[in-house]
Design a protein around this nucleic acid. Structure first.
Lengths: 192, 192
DNA sequence: CGGCCGGGTAGACACTGTCTACGCTGGGCT
DNA sequence: AGCCCAGCGTAGACAGTGTCTACCCGGCCG
């Protein structure tokens, strides 16, 4: 239980923990400060504004997501299609397991998106996807960036709609697997 | 300029207008009341809580989206593939043109999603998409709900990622058309 | 005419984010 | 040694917010 590190990191960690029980809207600066055991003015030393603290928390969320994805890729065969499947599964699973964090991570109104290069946090993920796509299907008629962008859109939208509950309500299916399979098959072709 | 209708409708309209310049996070109850020319306690007569007012505003957003989509479908040939393309274009265009409203519409943390059947507001849209899909490709191996869900996920995710700016940043393309084409081709097959 | 009730006002309360002035504490310099 | 200062955190103020409550006023019905 590392409580002896610097306040900056502690605030981010406390915020991320709080995000597992509270929703993104109720992540108040003062509450984070309280749980971190400091006064409400203390965070200001490290984060000039509420939004910048939230941005740092979101950034830690991207790091977690990155970890989960690389973790899933580690224990999966080298075949590109299987790797894309693993990546997609990890993405959707993360969104399911960390609903509030996932929502915060893509809330540009809360996030002063330029701060700390937050928007860029997802670029490595995208590049990885581009590589996997062009490896899996070097024969695609479109640029791999386009296919990868479409694929990512589908993953992200599915995570979001599931997070909102609409997809389950509309289709009656709570298992994301069929949709994932449909998306991957559609963009990468068949089951091969 | 209808300012003579009841306060309930006026509040929703003022909120929607405000949402064209402010972002979803700063849609305060008191500000809406001010712009509507009433005291800060007045909305409470019609909306017991801030969230319920926001939900009503989001609902009006779904109505607008619905209008735009049916409008786009009206001036488009009866061929199903073309109609799906029109629907998709209208969806993404709406998200682009009404960024804050689009974001509010899918903010489950703000929206007490059960209120006024908000979640259900998107069901007709989905059913329409299911019908169009099964009409366009009656030979698909999967249930049309699955394909429609995957398609909707892709549309929605693309709108969201574009709203956030990531897709443009990652791919360098600001035109949604190639991605839309890729998505539609992937799920509906070729250009036929 | 009198009561009443829908619909709006105004003030209070706890809470928030931000700003500012103030302490403490430890380390480096003369 | 003595001092001073920068770094770090505290505490209070301020405007603004959502919610709650008491009040008020005008039009309606009996």
């Amino acid at each position: 239980m590392p409580t002896d590190d610097d306040l900056r990191a502690r605030l981010v960690r406390v915020g991320a923990e709080l995000l597992r029980t509270e929703n993104a809207g109720s992540l108040s600066l003062r509450e984070i400060a309280r749980r971190a055991g400091v006064s409400h003015g203390a965070p200001r030393r490290y984060f000039p504004t509420h939004l910048s603290l939230l941005s740092a928390i979101a950034r830690s969320g991207f790091a977690d997501l990155s970890r989960e994805i690389t973790g899933a890729l580690a224990l999966c065969p080298a075949e590109p299609r299987a790797r894309i499947t693993a990546l997609a599964g990890a993405y959707v699973r993360f969104a399911d397991a960390n609903r509030s964090m996932f929502e915060l991570m893509f809330r540009h109104d809360l996030l002063q998106s330029g701060y700390l290069g937050l928007r860029e946090s997802s670029l490595p993920l995208f590049r990885l996807l581009v590589d996997l796509v062009s490896e899996a299907r070097p024969d695609l008629p479109r640029a791999p960036e386009v296919t990868a962008g479409a694929l990512w859109s589908a993953l992200h939208g599915m995570a979001q709609l599931r997070n909102w509950g609409t997809l389950q309500l509309a289709t009656g299916a709570s298992d994301p697997a069929p949709f994932l399979a449909a998306i991957l098959d559609a963009h990468l072709g068949g089951t091969g």
